[in-house]
């Protein structure tokens, strides 16, 4: 397990591939990200937020901004450490139940889904043995 994890971390990030993927849905995602008024009204609609004593980390907007938002902000130029951090946000902190509510009408699950597929393209995703141990947080 140690070796495979090490190998995953050593592999360089394919920035070009990430950029390609980001450009694919640029029109939609950039609009979603820029129209978010950062009002935090989506918070209470997330059961994970409520279950974690209203920890802001579990707010739907926080999760979208700090995963997909960061990718767009850095134009895909991210290192593996950051991707691993995002892995925790999009897989552990969000279960994609689709219950989050945005007063403006932004569809947050689609942003998380897109972040997940980008991370998956870089082979960053929770391993079956990691999930229960939560060692990848």
């Amino acid at each position: 397990m140690e070796n495979s994890k090490l190998g995953q971390e050593m592999k360089p990030v394919d920035v070009k591939k990430i950029k390609e993927m980001l450009n694919l849905k640029k029109g939609k995602m950039k609009r979603y990200l820029s129209h978010c008024a950062h009002c935090s009204l989506c918070a209470e609609s997330c059961f994970l937020y409520m279950a974690h004593h209203k920890d802001p980390q579990y707010m739907p907007a926080y999760k979208a901004i700090h995963s997909l938002g960061t990718l767009y902000k850095k134009k895909g130029k991210v290192d593996r450490k950051l991707l691993t951090k995002m892995k925790g946000i999009v897989w552990r902190n969000c279960v994609l139940c689709g219950r989050c509510y945005c007063p403006i009408g932004i569809h947050i699950p689609s942003m998380i889904t897109f972040a997940r597929s980008i991370l998956r393209s870089q082979e960053v995703y929770p391993q079956p043995d990691e999930v229960s141990a939560e060692s990848w947080l």
Partner: peptide
């Protein structure tokens, strides 16, 4: 005031806001 004092709003606030 919300932006300055509510932790959940501050978590997603930038200078831009």
């Amino acid at each position: 005031g919300r932006r300055l004092f509510l932790s959940r709003v501050r978590a997603i606030t930038t200078v831009y806001d």
